[in-house]
Amino acid sequence: MENQPVVIQYIVFFAKAAGVTLGISALSLAVGSVIGFGFSLMRISKQRILSLLTFAYAEIFRGTPILVQLFLVYFGLPIVFHINVSAFTTVAVSMILYTAGYMTEIFRAAIQAVDRGQWDASYTIGMTYTQALFKVVVPQAMRIAVPPTLGQFISILKDSSLASIIGFMELTKAGMAVRARTSSTLLAFTIVTCLYFVICYGLSIASRRVELRLKKA
């Protein structure tokens, strides 16, 4: 137990690492959502090629392990673009690509969950496809998409732990580093587990509340 005070000293270190985990996950969700939203519009469009391409994109990134995608970016970026990239860039690129695949499906499902009658009503009052989509359907779809998006955020937070493998200093890597320095393995991992749990469980409770409120409305 003589190692315990040493680990307590690392509290600030852990807090910063948890901040990095939250930051990289939020970045991936934000950029991945923008790409995913664009892709979802292509996915539902009547242009066969666009629809097929975005369908394939979503299937590819949802059907392969994030760890394999991470290694592909890690080994591939230097080869394809002839650049040496930081661990941060590698992690950000792979997590954004991965998240975009899931967000494409979330937005597509949300748009298609909006009642068909909303489209008909929009056309009846003389709206074009674009007007109906952006003024009537998308606003409603966004509300439907909130709970699954929060769920996706929780997944991203957990998946970001894999970034530790290529040396990116986030929460899991911080646990490994403290473990290496203090040799109090269990304590280090317990702190890491608790931090992940507090963040993810907090979000899942928030998600449930939002879902209930949306159901009432």
């Binding site: 957990k158 970001s160 732990s161 587990t193 993810c200 899942s204």
Partner: peptide, 8 residues
């Protein structure tokens, strides 16, 4: 188990 990473 649902709110912590599989890796951890």
């Amino acid at each position: 188990f649902r709110n912590t990473p599989l890796l951890v």
